[in-house]
Amino acid sequence: MSDFITFGILSFTSFFTLINPLGTMPIFMTMTAELNIQQRTKTAKKASVVAFITIVFFAFSGQLLFNFFNISVNGFRIVGGVIFFLMGMDMLQARLGKVKVKDSEVKSYVDDISITPLAIPMICGPGALTNAIVLMEDANSFEKKITLIITVFMVMLLTYIILYSSSKIINILGQTGINVMMRLMGLIVMVIAVEFFFAGLQPILLEMIN
């Protein structure tokens, strides 16, 4: 039971920090500035649903990708650890990789910005996809797999709520508050990165020694 709870907490924490909906808020507000409340709500909902489907798809198709490209899970953990660490470094410095949109191109994005760039790659980026594949490999029971899916759903629901309430949250936290939250999340991501890196490196080193 303890292992089951630990897996659930790890899944929720890692997905929430990697997706970082609080960091996405300012970009979401900027890109939906010309939309009314109903259109903004629809955009947030569609982006969250698309991101959820994409993450679940990659979680279940991860093993097929491994077999097709002859990639080991441990190698993927090492690469994932490096990706997470670099993302954590940027977050620790309150520096996000923003999607740049020229003023002249904003209106063309309004039609379907919920899919790209909001859902992919801002919400559902390389870090979240890597995390989904690795955690699904670690989910060695049916209960853990269900827990992983529920966890992703909960994070996406929170992401939708945060984006929907973005105007109020930004006014409450302010830019300083958002930067502080981003730094805390960055620290958590870096710790997860170290765990992933050495979890993948240890079996490879043992195999080389043997």
Rank of each mutant, 00 (worst) to 15 (best):
S11C: 05
M25G: 13
F196R: 12
F76P: 12
T151L: 02
F28G: 02
I83Y: 03
M181F: 13
D112G: 15
Q63V: 03
R40A: 08
K144D: 09
M87V: 10
L64Q: 05
F28P: 12
F198L: 11
N179T: 11
L158E: 00
M122L: 13
A94Q: 10
L129H: 03
F142C: 12
D103W: 02
Y164L: 08
I178L: 12
M208T: 06
I150R: 05
S114Q: 12
L201K: 06
F198Q: 08
K100L: 14
T54R: 07
Y109S: 07
F76K: 10
R95G: 06
V152W: 00
L158S: 03
R183K: 09
G97R: 11
E195D: 13
S72H: 01
G200K: 04
G62C: 04
S165E: 13
M181S: 08
A59N: 07
E195F: 07
I169P: 04
L187Y: 03
S61D: 01
I192M: 13
L201V: 10
M25D: 08
I209A: 10
F60K: 05
L163Y: 01
T13M: 04
R95P: 01
M185P: 00
Q175N: 14
L173F: 11
S167M: 09
L65Y: 06
G125Q: 02
Y109D: 05
K42G: 12
D3W: 00
M89V: 15
V101F: 14
A51T: 05
N131I: 09
K144L: 04
V99L: 07
T54S: 13
A94F: 10
D103I: 09
F68L: 10
N131Q: 11
I19P: 00
N131R: 07
Q93A: 13
M87H: 03
I83N: 05
I27C: 06
T17C: 15
I209G: 00
A47G: 09
I150F: 07
N179I: 08
T6V: 03
L10A: 11
N140R: 11
K145D: 05
T30I: 14
K102R: 15
F84W: 13
E207W: 06
T17N: 06
L135A: 06
I188H: 01
K168G: 02
V189W: 09
V152E: 02
P121F: 00
S167H: 08
N36A: 03
I204L: 15
N210Q: 10
L10P: 12
T54C: 06
S61L: 10
T13H: 01
V50F: 10
V191H: 09
M31R: 05
V134E: 11
F15H: 02
S167E: 13
L135E: 09
M156E: 04
M190D: 00
A139T: 03
T32I: 06
Q202N: 15
K144C: 04
L148N: 02
V73L: 09
